[in-house]
Amino acid sequence: METVVALGLIVFKVAFLIAILLLLPLPLTWLERKIAGHIQQRMGPMRVGWHGLLQPVADGIKLLTKEDHIPAEADRFLFKLAPILALAPPFVVFVAIPFGESISVRGTEITLYLSDMNVALLFVIAVIGIEVYGVIFGGWAANSKYAVLGSLRTCAQMISYEIPMGFAVIGVVMLAQSMSLLDIVRAQADLWNVVYQPVGFFVFFVAGLAEAQRIPFDLSEAEGDLGAGFHTEYSGIRFALFMVSEYVIMLLVSVLTVILFFGGWNGVLVPLPPLVWFVLKVAFFVYLFMWFRFTFPRYRYDQLMAIGWKVLLPLSLANIIITGVAIS
């Protein structure tokens, strides 16, 4: 009986998480368009629903009913596989992500995470890396110049930025003496890591921007010079899958930044429920992503590489050394 209940709880949590992650891109697209509009003194979507709130639903219906076009010269198997490969890793990563300690419902303690892995951070960074395959396959299978160029750029960009990203979190791991995300958050109960690790936060966040392929690092889908980058040839629901994965990654980077550097669900000053604190912090970082997008221009390709290898990598290495010296 006990095991059945525990199993049912896990299944319920997985279903709940997947539902939330699949549905969150809808309000996020609306939010992004609204923010874009207001920054440019427009109003954004206004006509479908109250202040355009139902616009994402209309867009979703449109994408579902559109023709699912596959180019004649495309590698059909890879072409179909790529959106799934791009979508699955960001969802898988959330297995290891904690959203809080636990809440009690009718006397039963329900933990707000699926699993407390002792190598959660390693798992997260490893699985995010798989997402590159979706992008590369998508660009390669479409057999189009723009798509191939876009996926080449993405490939180079993701590989160069995963290294500083991985190094940046080492400082956090050294401070918490653990790779479990739960322990990392617990270690920040007194003071957030961003105070100890400002450089680590900076490197992680910039690399996260590049990882999520957001402006100023959205070279892989630079509208101006590449059409739409690796998903140029995608249409309909497959295109929607790429978009969902992009938003989930954006969310993921925000969540990771909050967990690693901003104390997760630990609040300051204002006593709010831990989950509320967590959601507020993540919302702030999501907003930051969108705010960046409509403020900054795009980096040139060589600048992108220079920032990755000449600035972020030495900074993250120096950060590790200084943290090590300071701890010992």
Binding site: H38, I39, Q40, Q41, R42, M43, W291, F294
Partner: peptide
């Protein structure tokens, strides 16, 4: 600057 624009009156 963009934050300021965000809360300015829209011209639409």
């Amino acid at each position: 600057l963009t934050f300021g624009y965000m809360f300015s009156r829209s011209v639409t």
